[in-house]
Design a protein around this nucleic acid. Structure first.
Lengths: 194, 194
DNA sequence: AAATTGGATTGATAAATGTCAATCCGGATT
DNA sequence: AATCCGGATTGACATTTATCAATCCAATTT
């Protein structure tokens, strides 16, 4: 069912979708089930699809020369997954997108998504709002990364995305924060007294 | 003259501006001269204007409790300055935007900018492209911040924005990279041999 | 010319964080 | 029940980076 997506769009835009818009959207979003550990995108591939998470979760990460993983973002219900740079420039992605739980997605191809923005004003507005929202949240993350200590970053994350702590293992939280799992473990033990 | 902006929009959109569009744009962008060290935005203020740098440069930064400055972004000719979060949500900005050279800007109020997007398709497309571009470059910066060593970040910056090194003092480059000036100095002396 | 200022550099030292190895624990698998 | 495995923790130690203080230099300002 595409209801989760309809609702998401209506909430975001504050407008009601017409029957026609619903049909158009239904036509271009395919339902896709993915299992835990399955890859939505693999390093080296061009990102040709955008996924809307109806149920489940995902992470987008890179792997450096030493084999260490760096988590760029997480995804939860009602979040979108894709590598924007790869999908816009049609360049091979340096990232993996991996499902962290058995998940249910609504998937649209990149060309269809571009076309849909012309057909449905609501969808277009949604994408615009999403871009804006992303820019803002990324700016905050940069601010945290260059200006805060490890402990401050963790406590900031706990406030901003408490659900991450429930949903994802600590070694991934550490990677998201740019820390080693050991350091995060020690921070959680001692820190947060302030 | 607003020519620099017209040219920028036409290059970005690949479309030619109509005379009408040019008039509409000219009507809402004011020319503004600013001197070195003048503030375009101060911490605590709501960001009510967006600036297009015709000539000069700027930095956007925050100041933490210890009085340390953290540079979030630089601006050069043909770059835009504003705090997106503050201007969209009408919240007080945690950032300063300060001119680093005597500069010439084209300034538009936030409400006018929103309206202009409806009046000029080219302008709307430009803003969209800008948002997308920003998202991509911020993602790269996050990747650098959480996954690279200080030395790698500097060498990455040297490749991506060589003009920064020409134009801005090293203590600001250090702040942008999330490093102390001393550490950057030592990296530049020893590092980069790899 | 003298004085001031903003930046850059250097050395000594401290603090933060990473690395490596070992262990532990609980839930899933057989 | 025995085993396996992903994840968390801990200690010892290495490395990176920050901090503090001093100096230097060149460009302005006086």
């Amino acid at each position: 069912m595409h209801d989760a997506l309809f609702k998401y769009i209506e909430v975001r835009t504050g407008e009601k979708l017409t029957d026609n818009e619903r049909d158009v959207i239904t036509a271009v979003f395919d339902r896709k089930r993915m299992r835990k550990r399955q890859y939505f995108l693999q390093e080296g591939d061009v990102c040709r699809y955008i996924g809307f998470i109806v149920k489940g979760s995902a992470r987008m990460f890179s792997v450096d020369e030493k084999g260490h993983e760096h988590i760029m973002r997480f995804g939860l219900e009602s979040w979108w997954i894709s590598d924007q740079e790869s999908m816009i420039n049609l360049t091979p992605s340096p990232y993996y997108i991996e499902m962290l739980e058995d998940s249910e997605l609504l998937v649209i191809s990149v060309p269809n998504a571009l076309e849909l923005r012309n057909k449905s004003r609501c969808f277009d507005l949604t994408v615009q709002a999403l871009d804006r929202h992303q820019t803002i949240s990324m700016q905050k993350r940069i601010h945290a990364a260059i200006g805060m200590t490890a402990e401050e970053r963790f406590s900031d994350l706990s406030r901003t995305y408490p659900e991450f702590l429930e949903r994802f293992p600590m070694n991934m939280i550490a990677s998201y924060l740019g820390l080693s799992p050991e350091t995060l473990s020690r921070i959680r033990k001692n820190g947060l007294r302030k």
